[in-house]
Design a protein around this nucleic acid. Sequence first.
DNA 1: TCATGATTTGACCGCTTGGTCAAACTCACG
DNA 2: CGTGAGTTTGACCAAGCGGTCAAATCATGA
Lengths: 205, 205
Amino acid sequence: MDDAAPKTRIQIRNRKVILTAGLEVFSANGFRGATLDQIAREAGLSKPNLLYYFPSKEAIYTALLDALLDTWLDPLRALDPTGDPITEILGYAQRKLALSRDFPRESRLFANEILQGAPMVRDLLKTDLKALVDNRAEVLQNWMDAGLIRRTDPVHLIFSIWSLTQHYADFDVQIRAVLDEEDPFPGAECFLDQLYRSLLEPRAR
Amino acid sequence: MDDAAPKTRIQIRNRKVILTAGLEVFSANGFRGATLDQIAREAGLSKPNLLYYFPSKEAIYTALLDALLDTWLDPLRALDPTGDPITEILGYAQRKLALSRDFPRESRLFANEILQGAPMVRDLLKTDLKALVDNRAEVLQNWMDAGLIRRTDPVHLIFSIWSLTQHYADFDVQIRAVLDEEDPFPGAECFLDQLYRSLLEPRAR
DNA sequence: TCATGATTTGACCGCTTGGTCAAACTCACG
DNA sequence: CGTGAGTTTGACCAAGCGGTCAAATCATGA
């Protein structure tokens, strides 16, 4: 954003510590709900010390969001137009689900931001994200036109993968309250596989 | 909660006005992010006047959540064990989607609460919600055992309907940023129908 | 060793927060 | 009209908020 490359080892370490603490606190409380005191306590630093490494609360938040958005969309970018369609789409869903399992706080940070109207990233959604989705929807459309997968709305298909996978991170509390098992992810993997296979595999005629 | 039946017309009207304003503000900012001043402004009342009708900020919030939870789960309760399975499940998904279309703020209020760890409703989830889901999962399981729909995990099936339908309310900003059309709901209806038909309709053998 | 820049912090500031309270106002009803 | 319960609000409070600053401490290389 505004910060050039950090120099000393201490800077690198402390910026990392602060971002980790910020992720913890922002993802659990949203931007407005989080406080610098909470983040400072979580990071084991004093409040003025936070503001020595980041110019403001908002700077910590946007640094997190910026880093997040890239890695978050990588699985979608990785979808290979020359690969086997069903394998590619199922693989995408599984990679996205793995992100929810391994980085639930990142998922909740993003969910909080969108839920509250995406004040910081709305423009990026309309440009970068829209361009990526339009592009990948075209890949899906080509597969459908070639009869390799059944016809359906490609954009809603992408939405459904986002929704179903992120749900297991964002609504974690609800899922664990309802489910008997400890770990919902094996069941989720299996269900998603079955769901998208049913939807996409061309029927014998 | 603590309040008995309101008496005068003014009380009925103002409690309603406050709850409407509270819904607007809480759903857009979460509990911690919302302020009484915002709610008072939205309601057209003074801040001390809010606290004449509700004992605290939290009381407004929990009153909203309590009212919400009931209506939110009605479509699931309405699932008829004696009806046609596919019609019932598709109907449930469509009714839930209609809730997202017609009451997006309620959906976002709930999403905020869950996302932030469900501090106010966690116990209800573990008792009431779990009981309801267990019960409806049994209905689904019976349909599967009878061969009326294909076998799949009934609880993950319910999760998927929640996830896919609420997504259109909770991630509204993202969807509108990506989608070309104004109104995502006709496309969503169609997609969900196709998705669950593919998953559930028994295959010819 | 010292000097210099990087790092850390206690004290503080102006503002917002949820909430209180006494005083004022409104209104139905005898 | 009057009177008492119901309603409204300006002024206020203590706590918490994001952020500042000067002074203290630390680290490092000459």
